[in-house]
Structure formats: structure tokens, C-alpha cells
Design a protein around this nucleic acid. Structure first.
Length: 577
RNA sequence: GCCGAUGUAGCUUAAUGGUAAAGCAAUGGUUUCGUAAAUCAUCGACGGCAGUUCGAUUCUGCCCAUCGGCUCCA
């Protein structure tokens, strides 16, 4: 009996116990579904009246009470007609069973837990008795209801919204505490809190989803841009800057208006309808069309640090991760069909170069044709094949994301894992056969024949805003030296050291360090504390000893006091980094 | 947009149907200090608009923003 039960089985069973508790506490509740998920479980309910998270302790108590009753989970089979009778008041279950039995006449499996019956194929624990003995006993204390949220029935926003209750569950109380602790840590590195605290950026009610970049934040922003530019020019990209507002007729031609207008901002000029661009491509296309192109011009790589505007639904905004004014490290490559693979190969190399300095693990996904795609299936297949081939040739392992492509073409998405194990979508490489068609793009091949190029849309960091948000959380605010907006603070011990401290500061600035003299009327301790909070990489304390030997005393972020060093040596040290 | 919650000073929090309290920050003094908060004083706030009420920061409604999710997404 002391045998370990599979945690997913436990989680799934807890979801049923939760539903049972809801049935007892809120008669008339209709039940959706309740699966095990990562770290826990949830169950969706259609409640007779709405509840809030204040009710969670009560529900949790009821669940423990049910567990104490030693209730068994009994599996049985029912014919569809018996099922329909038994569940006549459970419209969601009836809907599920209708779909399940559409292609089969087999009996359906149900589970009975005390007075609660649910459509379910299992597996489950045998009975809550298992929770009372041996190792499993801990589980009673290792679960917790965490939050209450709305969720559309079957994940479709056209369906009614159900009330979802989330819980977390582990094998041991210890694991639960570890998890809660980790959540707290993650909260501490929340970029939305860190940003204003480190004086990097802020948000205002007057401009939802549009960051105000402060000086220090913009320094980081510009450093990343510099990093991007270096790599771009190495690979023969031209950089351009194009308008943010363009005539709606262009967006109609590109297909964006039809597919994307709910996410676009519009404005009017002398009766002419204009749109803030939600993407950079149509502008770049106009640029391409300015003159006839030859095969010698291809691949034509046009990069733009484009600002695009996307009108997001209000509940979707999230700090820098989801903004409405987005800066993309964007580029469009006009390429001959036969050169797609080699170009994608180069791009994959560029991706690696971009991510190299950030110690993040990269994952690659291939996304295929979505349901609302434009263009014919055959072209899509060809494009998907080209991407697959390039990935294979470069020995890159990738995951498949069915139906997740852009409406104009399949794409390769770059995801990264951050330091606390979360995954983020960053860059994207998208093939596009349709925009060239719509805009009638051409080039002249080596036999003087007109041919149609392909466009590759690509962003490496994705959006600078999101990327900075991720970096802040990845490094918990302690950015690497080269990205730190302020790298060194010079702290004089007393008033008489200010002159020497000032000289050091000037010398450091001359050597292109971002450095500040902290000569405010405060104690050394206070400034050290402040410097630690501000995540300054190096704090230099300057007193009599240092002045006498033309040296600095160094406190390195995360390491503490690392001793005295000659000023020149210190300059060398940070220059190297 | 949908479900639920939140909104008090720059930040973190308190209290109240009848003058809104504190710590940090800021500002002005004193102190000139050796590795995570010296000291005294001063300044400073009820998200917005309506309604109920003699009186609303408190109760009600609407709006806005934010948070946790859903959907969507770079």
C-alpha cells in the first residue's frame, strides 16, 4: 500500500475530487473537463452563481474532507443511451459524449467517486484510502488550490466562459513548498517590477502597452541594436527606415486588412484612410519595386529596426512581453526560389550569433499551414518542404507546430529557455510566396527572363521590448557588464577623497566605461547597499590607502569585496570583459 | 474582448460614512563616515466620472488602468 502512485494519476484524481467538492458545495453546477496539467490540475465549471478566490479555502477544506471519507474510484461502462439519461442535466458532458460516440458505438467509460459521476477514461487512484498510508499520505498536504479564472469552453472564445479552478499537487509537502518558493523567486525577477526600480522604463495609463523608455533602459536598448547592426552588416544587409503610417489600400493589397484589421490602428487624412503599420513588409515591398531588379541583386537583404503598432485586446497586455508599440529587429530578404535553402542556412547561423552572448538554450520549431491561410495548398507544401530541408541539412533538431504558421507562409520559430526554465518565443523566419504574388514582384534571371522572387521575413530577437523583458528576468536584473547601463560606481570614503575619486571617474569615462561618481552626502554603507540594489557590476571604494597607491578597492557584483587593484589593472580587467 | 480580482504619497503598506497614518525615497540642515539603511526637520496621496447622503477615500453604477487566467501573440 505504501507504493508510490503516479503523480499524474494523483493530479487527475484530485481534479475529480475537486469536482465532487463543487457538487456538494454548489448544487446545480455543470461540469466541463478536469485534466492533470504540469504541476497540478484544473477543472472547469459552469456555476449557478459566480465565486471568487475567497471561496478557495472552503473548497479545499471540502476536498480534504472527501479524501478522509475513504471513497473509492469505480470505473464502469455505459451505453450512450444510459449515459444520456444519467447526464441529462450536464450539457457539456452530453456534448462531449456526442463527439466521442460519433465514430464508434462502443460503450463509454465513466468513473464514480462517491456521489459524483464523471465521463472519464482514467486512470485514477483506487480510492482515497491510498492517501492515508505510507508515502502517499503526504499527498494530502502536498496539494493546494491556487487560483480561479475564466476559460472558454473548449478554448473557443465563441463558446460560453466557464469558471476554472486551478490547483497544484506534488508527491510531498516538501515539493509543494519548493514550488511555492520558486514561484516567489520568479515574482522577484518580474521585469514589470524591476524596470521602474532600476529606472529603465515605465508605463502610464495614458499609453497602455507602450513603454516609456528611460535613459538607462534606452542604453540597454541601443546596446542590443548595436549588437544586431554588427551582425547584420557582416552578412551584407542594408538598413533602411520606412514610414509608420501608410495608405489602407496598401494593406488591402497585402491582405493584412482582411486578416489583421482587428489588430490595426487607423487614422484619417483628408478623407483618406491610413493605417499604422502592424508589420514592416509592405513598405519594404514598395522599396523593392522602386526599380527593376536583376538576379545579380539577389538575395536582397533589407533590414529595418521597424516600429509596428498592434491593437491588442485589453486583457492581453503584459509589461514588455506584450506591448502595442513593438520594435522589431526585422528584415526582408528577396531571394530566388532556388536559393531559399542556402539563405535559410545563413539565417540559422545568424540566429546563433545573435544569441551567443546571452547563455540561453535555443529550441527550434517549424510551424505549418494555419486554417485561415491564403494561397493554394501546393505552394504551402513546397515552402514547408524547403524549410524542413534546410533544418535537416544543418542538423538542427526541431519540433513541429501544426497550423501555427503565418497566414502567408510557414515559419521557423526560435524559442529560448531562460535561467529559471521558462520557454519564450523569440525570433522567427517566415517564408512567403504570396506577398510577391500579390504585389507582382519580379526580377530578371540570367537568361533575361522575368521571375518571381520569394520573400523571407525574419526577426532575430523578435521584439526588442520583449527581448529586454526576458533578459531582465533571465539575469534577475544583473545584466552582463556589456549590457549594464551603469557599469561602475566610484564611492569616496570621505570628503577629502572626492578629488581623487573624480579623477578616477573621468579616467573611466575616457576609457568608455559607463561610470558615475557617488559623492552624495551619505555613508559608504548606504551607497554600497544602493549599488547592490541597483545591480551595479563594480563598486569602487576610494579612501586614503587607494589614493596613496593610485589604486581602487573593488566590490564585484555577486562576489563582494575582491580587494585592491591598480587603476590601470582594473581598466584592463573591465576592458577584457 | 471574456471570467475573477485590485487601484491610498515616487515605492511598500495602514486606517476611516465626518481633519487620511507610517517606513523608505525626495528636499533642507547636522555629520565626513572603509563595504547592504547615520541623524533632525520639511514636502507629498484616496485612478476618473456620475449617483445615494447634511457629508463619500469608504456605499452603488459606469469608465480607465493594472494583476491572475482564457483567447490571441513578437
Amino acid at each position: 500500500m505504501a507504493k508510490q502512485i503516479k503523480i499524474d494519476t494523483v493530479r487527475h484524481s484530485l481534479a475529480h475530487i475537486l469536482a465532487y467538492a463543487m457538487q456538494e458545495l454548489y448544487p446545480g453546477t455543470k461540469f466541463g473537463i478536469g485534466p492533470a496539467i504540469e504541476n497540478g490540475f484544473y477543472y472547469d465549471f459552469d456555476l449557478p452563481s459566480s465565486i471568487s478566490s475567497e471561496n478557495l479555502p472552503k473548497i479545499e477544506k471540502k476536498m480534504r474532507e472527501i479524501i478522509k471519507r475513504n471513497i473509492s474510484f469505480k470505473k464502469s461502462k455505459l451505453s450512450k443511451s444510459d449515459f444520456d439519461r444519467l447526464f441529462k442535466n450536464q450539457s457539456y458532458k452530453l456534448e462531449l459524449i456526442k463527439e466521442l460516440t460519433e465514430n464508434s458505438s462502443l460503450p463509454v467509460s465513466i468513473y464514480k467517486v462517491g456521489d459524483f459521476i464523471d465521463l472519464c477514461k482514467g486512470p485514477h487512484i483506487k480510492s482515497t484510502l491510498q492517501f492515508h498510508s505510507g508515502k502517499a499520505k503526504e499527498i494530502i498536504d502536498a496539494f493546494k488550490l491556487t487560483k480561479i479564472a475564466g476559460a472558454y469552453w473548449k478554448g473557443d472564445e465563441k463558446n460560453p466562459m466557464l469558471t476554472r479552478i486551478y490547483g497544484i499537487a506534488f508527491q510531498t509537502k516538501r515539493e509543494l513548498q519548493d514550488y511555492l518558493h520558486q514561484q516567489k523567486e520568479a515574482e522577484k525577477r518580474d521585469h514589470r517590477k524591476m524596470g521602474p526600480k532600476l529606472d529603465l522604463f515605465s508605463f502610464h495609463e495614458e499609453a497602455p502597452g507602450m513603454p516609456f523608455w528611460h535613459h538607462k533602459g534606452l542604453l540597454i536598448f541601443n546596446m542590443l541594436v548595436e549588437h544586431w547592426r554588427k551582425i547584420q552588416s557582416k552578412y551584407n544587409y542594408q538598413e533602411v527606415k520606412l514610414p509608420n503610417i501608410l495608405d489602407v489600400k496598401l494593406w488591402k493589397q497585402s491582405g493584412h486588412y482582411e486578416h489583421y484589421k482587428d489588430n490595426m490602428f487607423f487614422t484619417i487624412r483628408e478623407k483618406k484612410k491610413l493605417a499604422l503599420r502592424p508589420m514592416d513588409c509592405p513598405g519594404t515591398i514598395l522599396l523593392y519595386k522602386e526599380s527593376p531588379r536583376s538576379y545579380k541583386d539577389l538575395p536582397m537583404r533589407i533590414g529595418e529596426l521597424g516600429i509596428v503598432f498592434r491593437n491588442e485586446k485589453s486583457g492581453e497586455l503584459h509589461g514588455l512581453f506584450r506591448v502595442q508599440e513593438i520594435t522589431q529587429d526585422d528584415a526582408h530578404i528577396f531571394v530566388a526560389k532556388e536559393n531559399i535553402e542556402s539563405e535559410v542556412t545563413t539565417l540559422l547561423k545568424i540566429v546563433d550569433e545573435i544569441y551567443k552572448p546571452f547563455s540561453m538554450k535555443r529550441k527550434v520549431y517549424l510551424s505549418t499551414r494555419p486554417d485561415d491561410a491564403i494561397g493554394d495548398k501546393k505552394t504551402w507544401e513546397k515552402a514547408e518542404k524547403a524549410l524542413k530541408y534546410a533544418l535537416k541539412k544543418n542538423n538542427i533538431k526541431y519540433g513541429l507546430k501544426e497550423k501555427d504558421g503565418a497566414f502567408y507562409g510557414p515559419k521557423i520559430d526560435i524559442h529560448i529557455d531562460d535561467s529559471i526554465g521558462r520557454t519564450w518565443q523569440m525570433g522567427t523566419i517566415q517564408l512567403d510566396f504570396f506577398m510577391p504574388e500579390r504585389f507582382n514582384l519580379e526580377y530578371v534571371d540570367n537568361k533575361g527572363k522575368k521571375k518571381r522572387p520569394v520573400i523571407i521575413h525574419r526577426a532575430l530577437m523578435g521584439s526588442l521590448e520583449r527581448f529586454i523583458g526576458i533578459l531582465l528576468e533571465h539575469y534577475a536584473g544583473a545584466l552582463p557588464l556589456w549590457l549594464s547601463p551603469v557599469q561602475v560606481w566610484v564611492i569616496p570614503v570621505g570628503k577629502r577623497h572626492e578629488k581623487y575619486a573624480k579623477q578616477i571617474t573621468e579616467k573611466l569615462i575616457e576609457n568608455r566605461s559607463r561610470c558615475a561618481l557617488k559623492d552624495e552626502n551619505e555613508t559608504v554603507s548606504k551607497k554600497i547597499r544602493e549599488g547592490e540594489i541597483q545591480k551595479i557590476p563594480y563598486l569602487l571604494v576610494i579612501g586614503d590607502k587607494e589614493e596613496k597607491s593610485n589604486a581602487v578597492r573593488i566590490r564585484e557584483r555577486g562576489k563582494g569585496d575582491i580587494g585592491m587593484m591598480k587603476l590601470n589593472k582594473f581598466l584592463e580587467k573591465i576592458q577584457k570583459k
